[in-house]
Each structure stands twice: as structure tokens, then as C-alpha cells.
């Protein structure tokens, strides 16, 4: 069984904040991390490998430094890594990203299962997984917390919905996006760290993928950002201090005046 895991390197958003005076983004010490949901996808792949014999290839599209993210995942035990990097990929929206990833997966060939995190924490769109599945013309399931092979051609997954859970049966090859319930990501091991350090990571650009520069990156995108601005700030903040009775009374009146249903 050949599993492909798609990961993304994202800015660590806990270090991104807006300067309250200038209303601009403060970027001090913004580091890159692997999208947390993608680590769950890596873990899910490793669990399948633990239980049966599987080969795992991890791929990412990004700038040359995204190679760090791939080495980290290699050190957790995946077998191979592939970097999709080309200046032409810059500015890609979810469609152009999906075009690039699906071209790479098609070129890898013989893929039985593709795993992704449910969404990336920088964009929060949750679109790339389903779009890759659509471009590859394979079935998919999103927000999956548990999966098990039923037979050689079928997979049973449990997915989280707004109302509860659903159990789906999918034919393979299939694409699955996972949530944290699939299991806590294991840590890198010394043995795999050594291997990761030396591993050769191929880099594919538009030439290797047989794509035209107009089909990828900003040129190949349908959507475009026309304006970026600071969210409106709360200017009406109330701080309630004083005795317990006063505080209770004040909060009750505050919520009553705001006509909160149920209060």
C-alpha cells in the first residue's frame, strides 16, 4: 500500500499579532511550523504502516526552506519525501495549489491513499484536500477521526460532523482529511533522525510536473486578494470590578441591555 501525505509549512500564528497603535502586523520572531493538522495526517499514515506494510511518501509545495518540514516528518518515520518548489508556484490559491499537488501525485503513480490535515491553520480554508481528490477523480471524506481498511478495495472511516458522527465506506484509492482524534503525533526517533538528515529529497518544479507556468501560482489562480486590513477593534470594552454583588448585578444588566437571548 502506498500512502501519500500532503503537508504545509505555515507561519506560527501565535507569534503573529497586530500592533494596537499602528494597526499593522507585527512579525517579530515569526517561525515556520508544520501545520498541526498535517502532523495528525502523518500519524494516521504511520499507524497504518505499523499495522500492515505500507510505504509513505510525504509531499509539500513551498519555498526551498520547506525542505526542513519534510526532514522533520522523515524523522518521525515516513519513508520518502518530495518537495514541489518553483518560483512559478508563488501566490497560488487553493485551486492552483491543488493543480500542482495533484500533478505530483499523478506522476508518483500507484497511490492507494492520500492523507491531509483537515485544514491549514494559516488559511483555514479546508479546500485543498477535496480539490485534489476532485482533480484526481477519487472519492474523499473530510474531518475523519478514525479509519480502518475493510478489504483490499475499501476503507471505513468515522467522520465528525456538526451534529455527531457518520460512518462512511469508500472505495480506494481515496483521499481522507483528518482531525486530531486520529491520534497524538509520535515524536521523532533517533534512528529516523539520522536517516532524515542524509535523505535525498527530490525537488520538482513545473518542468518535472509537465505543467505550464500559466496553470500554477498566481497566474493559475482564480481568486485574488485585493485588500488586506486590520479587523475592527473593540472600542466599547467594559471592565467590571468591585464587590461580588456589584459585579453580578453589573454583568446581568450588561447582558440584559444587550438583549442576549436566554438571559
Amino acid at each position: 500500500m502506498h500512502i501519500v501525505v500532503c503537508i504545509k509549512q505555515v507561519p506560527d500564528t501565535k507569534n503573529v499579532r497586530i500592533d494596537p497603535d499602528t494597526h499593522t502586523l507585527v512579525r517579530q520572531g515569526v517561525e515556520s511550523i508544520i501545520n498541526p493538522f498535517d502532523l495528525f495526517a502523518v500519524e494516521a499514515a504511520l499507524q497504518i504502516k505499523d499495522a500492515s506494510s505500507a510505504t509513505i511518501t510525504v509531499i509539500t509545495m513551498g519555498p526551498p526552506q520547506a525542505e526542513e518540514a519534510l526532514r522533520e516528518v522523515l524523522s518521525r518515520g515516513v519513508d520518502a519525501a518530495l518537495l514541489l518548489s518553483d518560483r512559478a508556484f508563488a501566490g497560488a490559491d487553493t485551486w492552483a495549489t491543488s493543480v500542482t499537488l495533484s500533478a505530483a501525485i499523478r506522476k508518483l503513480g500507484n497511490v492507494d491513499l492520500i492523507l491531509c490535515g483537515k485544514q491549514a491553520v494559516d488559511g483555514d480554508t479546508a479546500q485543498v484536500g477535496p480539490e485534489v481528490a476532485t482533480l484526481l477523480d477519487i472519492p474523499y471524506a473530510t474531518f475523519v477521526k478514525k479509519m480502518e481498511p475493510l478489504d483490499a478495495q475499501h476503507l471505513k472511516v468515522t467522520r465528525q460532523t456538526d451534529e455527531g458522527t457518520e460512518v462512511w465506506k469508500l472505495s480506494t484509492p481515496a483521499l481522507i482529511t483528518v482531525i486530531k482524534e486520529v491520534g497524538e503525533p509520535r515524536l521523532p526517533s533517533l534512528r529516523h533522525k539520522m536517516r532524515a538528515k542524509k535523505a535525498a529529497i527530490p525537488v520538482w518544479g513545473i518542468a518535472e510536473l509537465g505543467l505550464d507556468a500559466n496553470d500554477v501560482g498566481l497566474c493559475g489562480s482564480f481568486t485574488q486578494v485585493v485588500r488586506v486590513f486590520s479587523p475592527p477593534r473593540r472600542t466599547d470594552r467594559v471592565i467590571i470590578e468591585g464587590s461580588l454583588e456589584e459585579q453580578v448585578e453589573q454583568l446581568y444588566r450588561y447582558l440584559k441591555e444587550a438583549k442576549v437571548p436566554g438571559i
Binding site: D93, T94, W95, S98, G123, D124, T125, A126, Q127, V128, G129, P130, E131, A133, T134, L135, Y140, T142, F143, Q160, T161, D162, E163, S221, F222, T223
Partner: peptide
């Protein structure tokens, strides 16, 4: 942007080849 909309709408966008903005 429910668990249904977020799940199948990207397939619609990719199938008709158009852009999609989430949330």
C-alpha cells in the same frame, strides 16, 4: 461553512473550475 458545506463545496468549485473563498 458547515460540516456539509465545507466538505462538498470545494468539489463543486474544482469541478466547474472556479474560485472559492472559505468562511
Amino acid at each position: 461553512a458547515t460540516s456539509i458545506g465545507r466538505s462538498f463545496i470545494p468539489r463543486v468549485a474544482a469541478s466547474v473550475r472556479t474560485g472559492l473563498t472559505a468562511d
